[in-house]
Amino acid sequence: MISVKELKHIYTDADGHEVSALNGINLDIPAGEFIAIIGANGGGKSTLARHLNALLLPTSGKCIVDGLDTAEEKNLWDIRQHVGMVFQNPDNQIVAAIVEEDVAFGPENVGVPGPEIKGRVDRALAAVGMSEYAKHAPHLLSGGQKQRIAIAGVLALEPRVIVLDEPTAMLDPQGRKEIVRTVKQLNKEKGITIVYITHYMTEALEADRVVVMEKGNIRFSGTPHEVFSRVDELEKAGLEAPLAAKIASELRKSGIKLPKEIITDEELAEVLCR
């Protein structure tokens, strides 16, 4: 579905200095995968995300989405329809003052006929569980609800991939749960490929695969268990491993034999009680 090859990106900042944000990323994301990207601030996660729907173009290397090269101008609108983007601040991505009008914004832009838009809007709102709010004003909704409207706005374009760049960073725990549940459901039920950027380990645990980024490189990747049990490497990448994984690692160092991949409290409790 998505194939990133030797992708480099260099920004020119306000003073004219060159900042290298991506130093040759290689990443293949098969259709239907739920992939989480984690990493310390400034690691290049957002930059990578923006390449996936051609908001940024490669300085060198390639980014191929569904067989379409993002660098080719003529592919731009197809790519943006295929790859939806959800950003961090729910307030700053809702365009219209009525929920259903906002969800209709994408399909209207690509010229979907009026009666069909209505159907798409209804389905998108149902998919995120917000049907009853169709006529509401977005500024009166909770953060989690606003973010689900933003997801519905993307869904109405019927994308194959949804890229979410720290969608829960500004939400309360309740809102975070809503978003993770919604995203997982879209992945399982509609088969939409999910690229999920997050700071929260518990959210990344839901993914099929976790990729760790640091200073514009992919350090390592694997299943959530593989990644989160590599305590030392996580720390080197500026991330904190889950507490259970850290304890397990310390115990192992002091000679206690433990199975390798312990990352949640429950798993730790289970082996220790044996």
């Binding site: 908001l55 943006r80 365009v95 706005g153």
Partner: peptide, 8 residues
């Protein structure tokens, strides 16, 4: 940016 990514 959000508008552009929604094909505006």
């Amino acid at each position: 940016v959000a508008m552009e990514s929604r094909c505006y």
